[in-house]
């Protein structure tokens, strides 16, 4: 019986497909008019990505019977949350930076799953994110031993913790900031960082391109994410 396709059924199938396109599927069709707008400002984009990631993480945790809330947990409960959120398997995500640090993460937690869905490829995103996030650290490592930086840092150290006096238990941050200005540390670092950041960004052009491409894709996916499902009945907490 299923094989006996009538001419009517053959005509009905494309019609059903067309109807689907006109209704539910139009919202995810890339060429459809009026897809959800991706905000233009960086702050609004960050907020959209963070909200989407949190949504995906919360859904994943809920599937594992866990709710991520700010309230304190018993150690066993927190270990369960850590395991579900950050993963427990081999550290399959790994990038060694020019500074020598090997940054790793588990690929089997809800956080990794959310990033995989949002950015399309958690391995590529991890690599790009870690490198781009540490461009400043890399630039600072490059000028760390510059004589101008060394002497400015020595003046700053002498200013915040004068020799011969015991190290203050909690030095005043305002003092530290004053010392950074007066020792010339702020100015020296700003000058050296500008130059080194330019170099470092040129060295990592590929990662910067990947970072932008994956972020753009994530923004489009985040904008398409359906509204959050209402919390279960009787659930009054956030």
């Amino acid at each position: 019986m299923p094989l006996a396709t009538t001419p009517l059924a053959r005509r009905a199938l494309p019609a059903a497909a067309a109807l689907a396109l006109l209704t539910g599927c139009t919202s995810v069709h890339p060429d459809a008019p009026g897809p959800p707008a991706v905000p233009a400002g960086r702050a609004a984009q960050d907020a959209l990505l963070r909200a989407a990631e949190r949504r995906l993480v919360d859904d994943c945790l809920a599937d594992r019977g866990i709710r991520a809330t700010a309230e304190p947990r018993a150690p066993a409960g927190d270990r369960a949350l850590q395991a579900a959120l950050f993963g427990t398997g081999p550290r399959e995500l790994s990038v060694t930076l020019a500074t020598g640090a090997t940054v790793t993460a588990h690929s089997d937690g809800c956080l990794a799953a959310a990033k995989d869905r949002l950015y399309g490829d958690q391995h590529r995103w991890f690599r790009a994110q870690v490198v781009v996030d540490n461009l400043r650290a890399e630039a600072q490592a490059r000028y760390r031993d510059d004589p101008a930086h060394r002497s400015a840092l020595a003046r700053w150290t002498a200013c915040v913790a004068p020799p011969g006096r015991p190290r203050p238990e909690r030095p005043d941050p305002a003092e530290s900031a004053r010392c950074a200005r007066e020792s010339g540390l702020d100015e020296t670092r700003a000058r050296l960082e500008r130059a080194e950041l330019t170099e470092v960004r040129a060295l990592h052009r590929d990662e910067l391109t990947t970072y932008r491409q994956l972020r753009d894709g994530a923004l489009r996916r985040a904008a398409l994410l359906p509204a959050p499902t209402p919390p279960p009945k009787g659930d009054t907490t956030s």
């Binding site: 993963g87 540490n134 530290s176």
Partner: peptide, 21 residues
């Protein structure tokens, strides 16, 4: 260094770890 006086050695996003550097 204290109060962010020296260089930033690393910046980590949630879930990221460094076992040795």
């Amino acid at each position: 260094s204290a109060w962010q006086g020296g260089s930033m050695t690393i910046c980590l996003a949630p879930g990221q770890e460094v076992g040795y550097n």
